[in-house]
Design a protein around this nucleic acid. Sequence first.
DNA 1: CTGAAAGCGCTTACAG
DNA 2: CTGAAAGCGCTTACAG
Lengths: 335, 335
Amino acid sequence: MSKKHRVTLHEVAAHAGVSTSTVSLVIRNNPRISEATRKKVFDSINTLGYVYDRVAANLRSQSSGIVGVIVTDISNKFISEFLIGAQNTLEQFGYTVLLGTTFDSVSKQDKLLSTMVEHRVDGLILNPASKSSEKTVKKINELQIPIVLANRELEDANCDYVGIDYVKGAYIAVTHLLEKGHKRIAYLGGIKASSTWIERMQGFQLAYERAGLKLDESLIIDGPPTREGGFDAVSKVLQNENPPTAIFCFSDLVASGVLQGLALHELTPGVDIDIVGFDNIPDSEIYHPPLTTVSSFPRSIGIKSANILYEKMTKSSPEKQRIILKPELIIRETS
Amino acid sequence: MSKKHRVTLHEVAAHAGVSTSTVSLVIRNNPRISEATRKKVFDSINTLGYVYDRVAANLRSQSSGIVGVIVTDISNKFISEFLIGAQNTLEQFGYTVLLGTTFDSVSKQDKLLSTMVEHRVDGLILNPASKSSEKTVKKINELQIPIVLANRELEDANCDYVGIDYVKGAYIAVTHLLEKGHKRIAYLGGIKASSTWIERMQGFQLAYERAGLKLDESLIIDGPPTREGGFDAVSKVLQNENPPTAIFCFSDLVASGVLQGLALHELTPGVDIDIVGFDNIPDSEIYHPPLTTVSSFPRSIGIKSANILYEKMTKSSPEKQRIILKPELIIRETS
DNA sequence: CTGAAAGCGCTTACAG
DNA sequence: CTGAAAGCGCTTACAG
């Protein structure tokens, strides 16, 4: 093993006494090579310490074996679970994952999209930033590679999509609160411009309509889909002259901030005020107190996204797919 | 914009009426190209919709612009925070991150290491699997690329390292419990073979020694560094004929499982039994009840790791570095 | 079942 | 300040 020089196919071929084509075929397990030759080549590979150069292979074969996955925030458990599902599935198919995190910034997202294309990714799974604009959609539609959107749908984007039914999720959560007798329910956190926020809002309204109630706009406070966002939103809504008796949170992460804020005001969730989250992240179970929430299925979304992408990358004319998973209500101690 | 064909440097050169070398230099912002030529070339790039092909560039220039980051578990908040730090820093330096998750499996780690090298990553940040063996170390030492280890040190590995002082962290946690009058303290979770477990054990022992106490091996139960691991360990230790009055947990994640297990036995943390975690992940603050824990600094570790790796990738003969961050005790309600 | 030759799309000296 | 030519390390038809 030399220090700087990388062993090439040529050298392996020379050492084994065959042609480079043969070595290439052996490496890729092509069955039309005889067992004897195969063994000879593998011996040479081992003694020379040859390392396959995918960069060269990719240039020649015009595919990279790399899939880009762009998400908004890996420290959000929902997203990290989603990522695990996508990554595991992709790796099983033999792909490697190039990860990008946008922190919900559209400009960062644009940059990542460009970088990934320059790296010739074979496909892309995108969990779009909340404020993705028409410009983003245009860019995505111009991309010449398979792409699937996850968790958040983009209007007019010509892509496959995997997500959950946020309308229904919000509907069951709010209906649960209404059935408990609440008439003033707040909706806290999440970016108003995003499809995920809008769809929850639709479910929220639907539940109100069916109950024959009118909603109070002053109880709807949007903000970043983070713990801080939840903390700020609850602080604001508690200053309302007629404060809510229950809160529907955009996500469990937002709910965690809401719980923090309530503790500060010495309000006990489930007693003084009812709270419902969204996502059912594992930690919601050990929040203080354990959080009632809507269960979505991030890992399944990741797996499904990867499967669809794989089909798009390998089949010639796959059908466009749109998969919507059904949510469930998990009742714990905050309601 | 044609549908299948990718525009090449050649075509841009022809369109702009210059040579490919010139286009190449323009793209890479080489200052020795005149402003006029530069503009002409950029115009052609835009009208043709040219996309830079890094795969080709990388093959020729023998560097990929990609850094591999291999971690044990992105759904662990400590790790995801670490990743954010590393990734942000690396991206600022212009690198793209190829992510690998081992789920603490050594064989998966081996495979990922190979894949990354085949993709010609320029450098590697490795958060080693708990049971990484001598074989792993040998493999790492043979790698011809810069590599920095994070969070867990590997004996005899010839690498830079960034982590925190686990001995001291465990020492301050256990001393805190001893000062509260506890004499039977359990140590739950974590893999016995890993440096992170061993170092905490050393701190644990040191605290006991200074207090003039002898430790009881039956209160030391190792296991996977996960919530499930914590749950299982606490279930076991509670069956001890002389159960502990306090528990030092390998990590906050383990502590979350311990809290779950205690709830099942109707023991109230901070009242019936004291608990201390390790990591100070954001959620520990809203655990039920809020967890006393040792604060480590995952994001800083990520940032430091990336900085050191960058130096190694760019400087010719950097000094070997070993950075150990100091932990702090955060007292909340479980003790 | 195996080999000789061309080429993927860039960058790199080198020449002018 | 710019161009012609070689080459990075593979894979891909094609021929035998």
